[in-house]
Protein backbone atom coordinates (compact mmCIF):
# COMPACT_ATOMS: atom_id res chain seq x y z
CA UNK A 1 0.00 0.00 0.00
CA UNK A 2 2.96 2.30 0.41
CA UNK A 3 3.25 4.73 -2.47
CA UNK A 4 6.91 5.38 -1.71
CA UNK A 5 7.96 1.81 -2.44
CA UNK A 6 5.85 1.87 -5.58
CA UNK A 7 7.70 4.90 -6.99
CA UNK A 8 10.97 3.07 -6.66
CA UNK A 9 9.90 0.52 -9.20
CA UNK A 10 7.77 2.78 -11.45
CA UNK A 11 8.87 5.37 -13.99
CA UNK A 12 7.95 8.98 -13.35
CA UNK A 13 5.13 8.99 -15.97
CA UNK A 14 3.71 5.76 -14.66
CA UNK A 15 3.72 7.24 -11.21
CA UNK A 16 1.91 10.41 -12.24
CA UNK A 17 -0.59 8.28 -14.13
CA UNK A 18 -1.19 6.23 -11.02
CA UNK A 19 -1.33 9.35 -8.90
CA UNK A 20 -4.04 10.81 -11.13
CA UNK A 21 -6.16 7.73 -10.68
CA UNK A 22 -5.65 7.80 -6.94
CA UNK A 23 -6.47 11.51 -6.80
CA UNK A 24 -9.97 10.88 -8.10
CA UNK A 25 -10.84 8.51 -5.30
CA UNK A 26 -9.01 10.38 -2.55
CA UNK A 27 -10.54 11.14 0.79
CA UNK A 28 -11.95 14.54 -0.20
CA UNK A 29 -14.18 13.21 -2.95
CA UNK A 30 -17.02 10.71 -3.06
CA UNK A 31 -16.81 7.11 -4.32
CA UNK A 32 -17.33 6.81 -8.08
CA UNK A 33 -20.68 5.12 -7.62
CA UNK A 34 -22.01 7.99 -5.49
CA UNK A 35 -20.69 10.55 -7.95
CA UNK A 36 -22.41 8.80 -10.84
CA UNK A 37 -25.64 8.60 -8.85
CA UNK A 38 -25.54 12.33 -7.99
CA UNK A 39 -24.82 13.32 -11.59
CA UNK A 40 -27.67 11.09 -12.82
CA UNK A 41 -30.15 12.61 -10.37
CA UNK A 42 -29.16 16.16 -11.35
CA UNK A 43 -29.28 15.42 -15.08
CA UNK A 44 -32.71 13.83 -14.63
CA UNK A 45 -34.01 16.73 -12.51
CA UNK A 46 -32.74 19.44 -14.87
CA UNK A 47 -33.83 17.34 -17.85
CA UNK A 48 -37.42 17.18 -16.65
CA UNK A 49 -37.65 20.75 -15.41
CA UNK A 50 -35.54 22.66 -17.96
CA UNK A 51 -34.68 20.70 -21.10
CA UNK A 52 -38.08 19.07 -21.72
CA UNK A 53 -40.01 22.39 -21.51
CA UNK A 54 -37.51 24.05 -23.85
CA UNK A 55 -37.80 21.22 -26.38
CA UNK A 56 -41.59 21.21 -26.02
CA UNK A 57 -41.88 24.92 -27.00
CA UNK A 58 -40.21 24.34 -30.36
CA UNK A 59 -41.85 20.96 -31.00
CA UNK A 60 -45.33 22.37 -30.41
CA UNK A 61 -44.54 25.46 -32.48
CA UNK A 62 -43.53 23.36 -35.49
CA UNK A 63 -46.18 20.67 -35.03
CA UNK A 64 -48.12 21.76 -38.12
CA UNK A 65 -45.10 22.60 -40.21
CA UNK A 66 -43.16 25.71 -41.12
CA UNK A 67 -45.95 27.27 -43.17
CA UNK A 68 -48.28 27.48 -40.14
CA UNK A 69 -45.35 28.68 -38.05
CA UNK A 70 -44.50 31.58 -40.33
CA UNK A 71 -48.17 32.42 -40.82
CA UNK A 72 -48.55 32.70 -37.03
CA UNK A 73 -45.53 34.96 -36.51
CA UNK A 74 -46.28 37.19 -39.49
CA UNK A 75 -49.93 37.67 -38.54
CA UNK A 76 -50.67 41.44 -38.24
CA UNK A 77 -51.77 41.03 -34.61
CA UNK A 78 -48.57 39.15 -33.79
CA UNK A 79 -46.52 41.87 -35.50
CA UNK A 80 -48.25 44.66 -33.60
CA UNK A 81 -47.67 42.69 -30.37
CA UNK A 82 -43.95 42.45 -31.20
CA UNK A 83 -43.85 46.18 -31.91
CA UNK A 84 -45.45 47.03 -28.57
CA UNK A 85 -43.10 44.67 -26.73
CA UNK A 86 -40.12 46.37 -28.38
CA UNK A 87 -41.46 49.84 -27.54
CA UNK A 88 -41.98 48.92 -23.88
CA UNK A 89 -38.45 47.47 -23.61
CA UNK A 90 -36.89 50.41 -25.49
CA UNK A 91 -38.36 52.85 -22.95
CA UNK A 92 -38.05 50.77 -19.78
CA UNK A 93 -34.45 49.59 -20.24
CA UNK A 94 -32.75 53.01 -20.75
CA UNK A 95 -34.74 54.59 -17.89
CA UNK A 96 -33.73 51.81 -15.52
CA UNK A 97 -30.11 52.03 -16.71
CA UNK A 98 -29.96 55.75 -15.86
CA UNK A 99 -31.53 55.00 -12.49
CA UNK A 100 -29.22 52.04 -11.85
CA UNK A 101 -26.04 54.03 -12.58
CA UNK A 102 -27.26 56.96 -10.51
CA UNK A 103 -28.23 54.77 -7.53
CA UNK A 104 -24.99 52.79 -7.71
CA UNK A 105 -22.92 56.02 -7.85
CA UNK A 106 -24.61 57.42 -4.74
CA UNK A 107 -24.52 54.13 -2.82
CA UNK A 108 -21.08 52.84 -3.82
CA UNK A 109 -19.06 56.08 -3.76
CA UNK A 110 -20.54 57.86 -0.73
CA UNK A 111 -21.38 57.16 2.89
CA UNK A 112 -24.73 58.39 4.16
CA UNK A 113 -27.37 57.57 6.72
CA UNK A 114 -30.14 55.20 5.70
CA UNK A 115 -28.07 53.55 2.96
CA UNK A 116 -29.13 50.02 3.83
CA UNK A 117 -32.78 51.12 3.94
CA UNK A 118 -32.37 52.63 0.47
CA UNK A 119 -30.90 49.36 -0.85
CA UNK A 120 -33.82 47.41 0.60
CA UNK A 121 -36.32 49.86 -0.93
CA UNK A 122 -34.70 49.42 -4.35
CA UNK A 123 -35.32 45.67 -3.94
CA UNK A 124 -39.03 46.17 -3.17
CA UNK A 125 -40.29 45.45 -6.71
CA UNK A 126 -38.69 41.98 -6.46
CA UNK A 127 -41.01 41.20 -3.56
CA UNK A 128 -44.18 42.50 -5.20
CA UNK A 129 -46.37 40.07 -7.14
CA UNK A 130 -46.65 41.18 -10.80
CA UNK A 131 -50.43 41.37 -10.50
CA UNK A 132 -50.07 43.81 -7.59
CA UNK A 133 -47.63 45.86 -9.68
CA UNK A 134 -50.39 46.26 -12.24
CA UNK A 135 -53.01 46.94 -9.57
CA UNK A 136 -51.19 49.90 -8.00
CA UNK A 137 -51.01 51.75 -11.33
CA UNK A 138 -54.72 51.16 -11.87
CA UNK A 139 -55.35 52.70 -8.43
CA UNK A 140 -53.51 55.84 -9.53
CA UNK A 141 -54.29 56.20 -13.24
CA UNK A 142 -57.47 54.12 -13.62
CA UNK A 143 -60.93 55.62 -14.12
CA UNK A 144 -61.66 55.60 -10.37
CA UNK A 145 -58.03 56.31 -9.47
CA UNK A 146 -56.31 59.39 -8.05
CA UNK A 147 -55.81 61.07 -11.42
CA UNK A 148 -58.67 59.23 -13.17
CA UNK A 149 -61.02 62.15 -13.72
CA UNK A 150 -58.20 64.57 -14.62
CA UNK A 151 -56.84 62.16 -17.26
CA UNK A 152 -60.37 61.53 -18.56
CA UNK A 153 -61.07 65.26 -18.92
CA UNK A 154 -57.84 65.74 -20.87
CA UNK A 155 -58.39 62.61 -22.94
CA UNK A 156 -55.17 60.96 -21.78
CA UNK A 157 -55.23 57.19 -21.51
CA UNK A 158 -52.71 55.48 -19.25
CA UNK A 159 -54.48 52.31 -18.16
CA UNK A 160 -55.57 50.01 -21.00
CA UNK A 161 -53.08 51.93 -23.13
CA UNK A 162 -49.36 51.97 -23.91
CA UNK A 163 -48.21 54.27 -21.03
CA UNK A 164 -49.66 51.84 -18.47
CA UNK A 165 -47.85 48.92 -20.09
CA UNK A 166 -44.58 50.86 -20.09
CA UNK A 167 -45.02 51.86 -16.42
CA UNK A 168 -45.76 48.28 -15.36
CA UNK A 169 -42.70 47.10 -17.30
CA UNK A 170 -40.48 49.72 -15.64
CA UNK A 171 -41.73 48.65 -12.22
CA UNK A 172 -41.04 44.93 -12.59
CA UNK A 173 -37.55 45.50 -14.04
CA UNK A 174 -36.72 48.35 -11.67
CA UNK A 175 -33.99 46.75 -9.48
CA UNK A 176 -31.97 44.74 -12.02
CA UNK A 177 -29.34 47.25 -13.20
CA UNK A 178 -28.91 48.81 -9.76
CA UNK A 179 -28.56 45.35 -8.18
CA UNK A 180 -25.78 44.43 -10.62
CA UNK A 181 -23.89 47.70 -10.33
CA UNK A 182 -23.99 48.42 -6.58
CA UNK A 183 -21.79 45.48 -5.41
CA UNK A 184 -19.51 45.87 -8.45
CA UNK A 185 -18.87 49.58 -7.86
CA UNK A 186 -18.51 49.04 -4.11
CA UNK A 187 -15.81 46.44 -4.78
CA UNK A 188 -13.97 48.78 -7.16
CA UNK A 189 -13.82 51.59 -4.63
CA UNK A 190 -13.21 55.18 -5.67
CA UNK A 191 -9.44 55.52 -5.96
CA UNK A 192 -9.44 55.74 -9.76
CA UNK A 193 -12.22 58.36 -9.78
CA UNK A 194 -10.36 60.41 -7.18
CA UNK A 195 -7.18 60.22 -9.23
CA UNK A 196 -9.12 61.49 -12.24
CA UNK A 197 -10.52 64.34 -10.21
CA UNK A 198 -7.07 65.36 -8.93
CA UNK A 199 -5.81 65.37 -12.52
CA UNK A 200 -8.56 67.85 -13.42
CA UNK A 201 -11.35 65.76 -14.92
CA UNK A 202 -14.91 66.97 -14.52
CA UNK A 203 -17.60 64.80 -12.95
CA UNK A 204 -19.05 63.71 -16.31
CA UNK A 205 -15.58 62.99 -17.69
CA UNK A 206 -14.90 60.76 -14.69
CA UNK A 207 -18.16 58.94 -15.29
CA UNK A 208 -17.53 58.44 -19.02
CA UNK A 209 -13.77 57.80 -19.02
CA UNK A 210 -13.20 55.99 -15.72
CA UNK A 211 -16.37 54.53 -14.24
CA UNK A 212 -18.09 53.28 -17.42
CA UNK A 213 -15.08 51.35 -18.75
CA UNK A 214 -14.77 49.71 -15.32
CA UNK A 215 -18.40 48.68 -15.04
CA UNK A 216 -19.22 47.96 -18.70
CA UNK A 217 -19.57 44.18 -18.32
CA UNK A 218 -21.68 44.42 -15.19
CA UNK A 219 -23.80 47.07 -16.87
CA UNK A 220 -24.25 44.90 -19.96
CA UNK A 221 -25.27 42.02 -17.71
CA UNK A 222 -27.87 44.21 -16.00
CA UNK A 223 -29.19 45.43 -19.37
CA UNK A 224 -29.52 41.84 -20.63
CA UNK A 225 -31.51 40.79 -17.56
CA UNK A 226 -33.67 43.92 -17.65
CA UNK A 227 -34.41 43.46 -21.33
CA UNK A 228 -35.34 39.77 -20.93
CA UNK A 229 -37.75 40.56 -18.11
CA UNK A 230 -39.13 43.65 -19.87
CA UNK A 231 -39.98 41.72 -23.02
CA UNK A 232 -41.36 38.74 -21.14
CA UNK A 233 -43.40 40.38 -18.39
CA UNK A 234 -46.89 38.98 -18.21
CA UNK A 235 -48.81 39.46 -14.94
CA UNK A 236 -48.27 43.20 -14.44
CA UNK A 237 -48.80 44.04 -18.10
CA UNK A 238 -51.85 41.79 -18.24
CA UNK A 239 -53.51 43.70 -15.39
CA UNK A 240 -53.09 47.14 -17.00
CA UNK A 241 -53.42 46.23 -20.68
CA UNK A 242 -57.09 45.50 -21.16
CA UNK A 243 -56.11 42.97 -23.86
CA UNK A 244 -57.17 45.09 -26.82
CA UNK A 245 -56.01 42.96 -29.76
CA UNK A 246 -53.76 44.86 -32.16
CA UNK A 247 -53.61 47.80 -29.74
CA UNK A 248 -52.42 46.98 -26.23
CA UNK A 249 -51.26 43.43 -26.73
CA UNK A 250 -47.66 42.55 -25.97
CA UNK A 251 -46.10 39.28 -27.12
CA UNK A 252 -46.73 37.37 -23.87
CA UNK A 253 -50.35 38.59 -23.86
CA UNK A 254 -50.73 37.55 -27.49
CA UNK A 255 -49.47 34.08 -26.51
CA UNK A 256 -52.13 33.90 -23.80
CA UNK A 257 -54.94 34.95 -26.14
CA UNK A 258 -53.96 32.41 -28.82
CA UNK A 259 -53.65 29.69 -26.18
CA UNK A 260 -57.05 30.49 -24.66
CA UNK A 261 -58.47 30.43 -28.21
CA UNK A 262 -57.08 26.86 -28.63
CA UNK A 263 -54.75 27.98 -31.43
CA UNK A 264 -51.96 25.95 -29.84
CA UNK A 265 -49.51 25.92 -32.76
CA UNK A 266 -49.83 29.69 -33.21
CA UNK A 267 -49.47 30.29 -29.46
CA UNK A 268 -46.30 28.21 -29.36
CA UNK A 269 -44.98 29.84 -32.54
CA UNK A 270 -45.06 33.28 -30.88
CA UNK A 271 -43.84 31.68 -27.63
CA UNK A 272 -40.89 30.17 -29.50
CA UNK A 273 -39.69 33.68 -30.39
CA UNK A 274 -39.73 34.55 -26.69
CA UNK A 275 -37.95 31.27 -25.92
CA UNK A 276 -35.28 32.21 -28.49
CA UNK A 277 -34.92 35.53 -26.69
CA UNK A 278 -34.38 33.57 -23.46
CA UNK A 279 -31.72 31.38 -25.11
CA UNK A 280 -29.92 34.43 -26.52
CA UNK A 281 -30.09 35.97 -23.04
CA UNK A 282 -28.48 32.88 -21.50
CA UNK A 283 -25.73 32.82 -24.16
CA UNK A 284 -24.94 36.52 -23.68
CA UNK A 285 -24.97 36.03 -19.92
CA UNK A 286 -22.52 33.12 -20.15
CA UNK A 287 -20.31 35.20 -22.47
CA UNK A 288 -20.30 38.18 -20.09
CA UNK A 289 -19.44 35.92 -17.14
CA UNK A 290 -16.60 34.41 -19.18
CA UNK A 291 -15.30 37.92 -20.02
CA UNK A 292 -15.45 38.98 -16.38
CA UNK A 293 -13.53 35.84 -15.37
CA UNK A 294 -10.93 36.56 -18.10
CA UNK A 295 -10.54 40.13 -16.85
CA UNK A 296 -10.11 38.89 -13.28
CA UNK A 297 -7.37 36.46 -14.38
CA UNK A 298 -5.51 39.13 -16.40
CA UNK A 299 -5.78 41.57 -13.49
CA UNK A 300 -4.30 38.99 -11.13
CA UNK A 301 -1.38 38.28 -13.42
CA UNK A 302 -0.40 42.00 -13.53
Amino acid sequence: MSINTATNTLTQSQYSNYNNKVAISRATSEPALVRRLFISIVVLFLGIFLILPLLAVFTEALRHGFATYFAAISDPNALSAMKLTLIAALIAVPLNVVFGVSAAWAIAKFEFKGKSILITLIDLPFAVSPVIAGLIYILIFGMQGWFGSYLFDHDIKVIFAIPGIVLATIFVTFPFVARELIPLMQAQGKDEEEAGLVLGASGWQILWRITFPNIKWGLLYGVILTNARAMGEFGAVSAVSGHIIGMTNTMPLHVEILYADHQLAAAFAVASLLALLAIVTLILKTFVEWRVAQNAISNESI
Binding site: L46, L50, P53, L54, P130, L264, L274, A278
Partner: peptide, 29 residues
Amino acid sequence: LDALVDLPFALPTAVAGITLATLYSAHGW
Protein backbone atom coordinates in the same frame (compact mmCIF):
# COMPACT_ATOMS: atom_id res chain seq x y z
CA LEU B 1 -26.52 22.48 -17.91
CA ASP B 2 -24.84 25.22 -15.86
CA ALA B 3 -26.00 27.90 -18.32
CA LEU B 4 -29.50 26.36 -18.54
CA VAL B 5 -30.04 26.70 -14.77
CA ASP B 6 -30.95 30.35 -15.37
CA LEU B 7 -33.64 29.48 -17.91
CA PRO B 8 -36.53 30.13 -15.48
CA PHE B 9 -35.16 33.70 -15.02
CA ALA B 10 -34.93 34.29 -18.75
CA LEU B 11 -37.98 32.46 -20.08
CA PRO B 12 -41.11 34.66 -20.03
CA THR B 13 -43.55 33.30 -17.45
CA ALA B 14 -46.42 33.00 -19.94
CA VAL B 15 -44.24 30.79 -22.15
CA ALA B 16 -43.30 28.65 -19.15
CA GLY B 17 -46.98 28.53 -18.22
CA ILE B 18 -48.37 27.24 -21.51
CA THR B 19 -45.42 24.86 -21.95
CA LEU B 20 -45.82 23.26 -18.51
CA ALA B 21 -49.60 23.07 -19.03
CA THR B 22 -49.05 21.24 -22.33
CA LEU B 23 -46.32 18.92 -20.98
CA TYR B 24 -48.42 17.83 -17.99
CA SER B 25 -51.80 17.65 -19.74
CA ALA B 26 -53.35 14.19 -20.26
CA HIS B 27 -51.81 14.04 -23.75
CA GLY B 28 -48.53 15.78 -22.93
CA TRP B 29 -45.10 14.14 -22.86
